[in-house]
Amino acid sequence: MLIIDCPFCGPRAESEFAYGGEGGIARPLATETLTDEQWGDYVFMRSNPKGLHHEQWRHASGCGKWFNALRDTLTYRFHGTWKIGAEPPEAFTRRVQPAAPVGETVVEGLAR
């Protein structure tokens, strides 16, 4: 059982929380001008990394509030949780950003 540190309530058992998918995906603003590709990227495409992952969780059976988390998807260890809009932990800014649109550059090494 994971222990998750709710930024509002403190550490609680995993079963109190609901996973909310990848974090930091902002809804596009000028929606009437978006192409199908941009909509598809926003709605469906995910980075799904093996390693550090920025995600959102909700303390569903507790305070009911959403918050950000940085979790390792291989070890499942939480590297920090923070309130929406608050300053993220240092590990968050250090992490490698995975995947970009198709380019000509050779990508080597796992995006971790």
């Binding site: 469906f44 995910r46 980075s47 796992l110 995006a111």
Partner: peptide, 14 residues
């Protein structure tokens, strides 16, 4: 998804 990221694109997978 890990392999797709090596080729520079994303997939709609989790």
């Amino acid at each position: 998804s890990v392999l797709a990221s090596l080729a520079g694109f994303r997939l709609p997978l989790e």
